[in-house]
Amino acid sequence: MARLNVEIGSLKLKNPVLTASGTFGYGTEFADFVDLNRLGGFIVKGTTLNAREGNDYPRMAETPSGMLNAVGLQNKGVDYFINNIYPTLLDIDSEIIVNVSGASIDDYVEVARRLAPLERINAIEVNISCPNVKQGGMAFGTTCEGAASVTKAVRNAFNKTLIVKLSPNVTDIASIAKAVEAEGADSVSLINTMLGMAIDVERQRPYLSTITGGLSGPAVRPIAVRMVWQVAKAVKIPIIGLGGITSGKDALEFIMAGATAIQVGTYNFVDPTVTSKIVDEIDDYCHRHNVSDINELRGII
């Protein structure tokens, strides 16, 4: 096997393959299909201070090579995670990263503060880019000031690895990445979903209860690769790339564009074993191309 270990802040991952928040549940939903210990880690569902019921049904629509979703951060709140879910994850030998969301800066800070003492949580991913909630969410992620202020506040509350997840719904994603780097983020992950919309013309109404929603899947991949490449040129902190990854080859596009690690999202729904296959395919690629360490491929474009 080639050397696949990568580092994100103080996180040491056994390989660059992570799962994207909101697409892999708490990992356990996929335990019948994937050996969770084979993954670099997984990022659990968006977690907020208080429980949220999410948006009304319908929340999804299939679109060309992808889907729209409007889940709206349904979750049982951070305390439920700590008391009921975290204890069930302790046997898993790969990194567990919690995706943190909030409607206000105080919310983000409080969730981060409560997660900080958990021994197995070495990193959080702060979601400043959710297009499906009315306040907060994406609003923070679309201006440099908003992104910087959330990062700064959470940085003070959480001294382990801090990843900030960026929104693609901006004109200049590199400037946002620079703003969060300046406030002490250890890493940025990109991209979250792109704001989209689809209409059922037979019924003459939108498919989603929220009218607009987040587009994900292979349809967004070229945009995501481009954004990772732009951000890689602008910041020094490690980048986690995602958006439409379905194979080792797709993952390597992100790595060559400058990502240190990658996440697999929507494609888990199509092939629940895809993450494990991607680990094998990256290894196979390294053998075919005489690459002894995956880090050699990073940012070669």
């Binding site: 697409t23 939903e29 996929f30 999410g54």
Partner: peptide, 10 residues
């Protein structure tokens, strides 16, 4: 979408 309780779409 997923059928296994991961996406919360259904």
């Amino acid at each position: 979408a997923c059928g296994v309780g991961a996406c919360l779409c259904c």
